[in-house]
Amino acid sequence: MTEGGFEREPVALDARITSDGSTAWPVEAGRYRLVVARACPWAHRSVIVRRLLGLDPAISMGIAGPLHDERSWRFHLDPDCKDPVLGIEYLGEAYRAADPDFDAGVTVPAMVEVSSGKVATNGFQQLTLDFSTQWTAHHRPGAPDLYPQAHRDEIDEVIASFYEDVNNGVYKCGFASTQEAYEKAYGELFGRLDALSERLADRRYLVGDTITEADIRLWVTLVRFDAAYHGHFKCNRQKLAEMPVLWAYARDLFQTPGFGDTTDFVQIKQHYYGVHHTINPSGVVPLGPDVRPWLDPHGREALGGRPFGDGTPPGEPVEGERVPSIS
C-alpha cells in the first residue's frame, strides 16, 4: 500500500444468516433487526434491497442517527435516544452483547437478534446477496431478481471492478494522509468512473436489462458524490452533475422506487461534515448543493430495459421509514 493510504478494516462479525441451517443464524421472520444509518452507503444498499424485495415485514429496521463518537453509532433521533425495539443507546452495546471483549469497528449495517440483543452479522459485502438468495421465502409477490443466476458471474466481476476504485476509492481520497496516496486514489477513482461512463453510454443498467445488485452498489456512492465526496473528500475533478452519462444514470435510479425515497441528503451531509473532525475541524455543514435537479428528466428510457424485470415496483415506504422528499 502507498504510504499514507487508507485501508478499510475487515468486519469482525461476518457470520451469515442462511435458509438451510448451515450456519448458527437461521433465516426466521421477526428474529432480526437490521440496524442502519441513512448517511452510510454500505447501510444504504441494505435499505434499498430490503425495500425492493419487500422484506420489511420479516426484518424490522432500526435507524441510527447521522452523528456518532468514539462509542459508536447512536440512536440519537429516537425518543430517549434509544432504539425502540432493542432498547440500546449505542450500537456498540449489541456488539459487546455478542462479544464482551469486542474492540473492532462498530459498523452499519448490522443484523441484530432481537431476543438476545446480539449482533449476528455485520458482513456488509454478503448481507444484501443473502437477502436476495436466502430470504426468498419472505420476498413480496413481484419482488425483482436482483442477483439473477444467469448473470451472477458478470455481476460479481463488475462489482469487483469498482469496489476498490469507487466505493472504497472516495474514502481513499478523503482519508489519504500523503499527497502521493491521495493522487494515486484520485487517478484510480476518476479512471474507473470514466470506464463506467463508457459502459453505461449505450446500456441502461450495468448488467443485463434490469436493475441488479451491481447497480445498487455503484449508485449509493454516486448519490453521495456531489453532497459529500466532491468537496469533503477532495474528489473534485468533476461533480457527478458534470459527468453526463453517470449523472443521467444516477437520476434514472433516483427516480425509481426504492432509491430516491430511501435517500436523506440532510443526514448524509450531517454525518460526513459533522463526524470527520480531522478533515472538517469546524463541523460546519454546507447548505448546498441544490438537490432539486435529481428530479430532472434523464432520458434513459430510450435505452430500453425493464427496471424490475418480470417483477413490480415496491409499494410506498412503511410508516416511520419515510425520508424527506425533494420539493
Rank of each mutant, 00 (worst) to 15 (best):
T2Q: 04
T2G: 00
E3T: 03
G5Y: 00
E9F: 11
A12K: 11
A12H: 08
A15K: 12
T18P: 05
D20N: 15
S22K: 12
A24H: 13
W25K: 12
P26C: 12
V27T: 12
Y32V: 11
V36Y: 01
A37V: 09
R38E: 12
R45E: 04
S46L: 03
G54I: 01
A58S: 04
A58R: 00
I59Y: 01
G65H: 07
L67R: 14
L67I: 15
L67P: 00
H68C: 08
W73E: 10
F75E: 08
L77G: 14
L77Q: 15
C81Q: 15
K82V: 14
K82D: 04
K82L: 13
D83G: 06
G87M: 06
E89W: 08
Y90V: 11
A94T: 01
Y95P: 07
R96C: 00
R96W: 04
A97L: 08
D99S: 05
P100N: 09
F102E: 06
D103K: 10
G105R: 14
T107D: 02
M111C: 07
M111R: 01
V114R: 06
V114K: 06
S115A: 14
S116T: 14
S116L: 05
G117A: 01
G123P: 00
T128A: 02
T128M: 06
G142Q: 03
G142Y: 05
D145L: 05
L146M: 07
D165Q: 13
V170A: 12
Y171I: 08
C173S: 04
C173H: 07
F175V: 06
A176P: 04
A176F: 07
S177W: 05
K184A: 09
D194E: 09
A195E: 10
L200W: 04
L200S: 03
A201G: 00
A201Y: 00
D202H: 11
R204L: 03
D215S: 02
L218D: 04
W219M: 08
W219L: 09
T221Q: 08
T221W: 01
R224V: 14
F233R: 12
K234Q: 15
N236D: 15
Q238Y: 15
L240D: 11
L246S: 13
W247S: 15
W247R: 15
Y249F: 15
A250Y: 11
R251M: 14
R251H: 13
L253D: 11
T256D: 10
P257Y: 12
G260S: 10
D261C: 07
D261Q: 07
T262Q: 09
V266W: 05
Q270P: 01
H271C: 08
Y272N: 07
Y272V: 07
Y272A: 07
N280W: 02
P281Q: 06
V285N: 03
R292N: 04
R292F: 02
R292T: 14
P293R: 11
P293S: 13
W294H: 05
G299I: 01
R300P: 05
A302Y: 00
R306W: 02
F308A: 09
D310E: 11
T312K: 06
T312R: 05
P314G: 06
G315S: 06
V318L: 11
E319I: 07
P324I: 01
S325D: 09
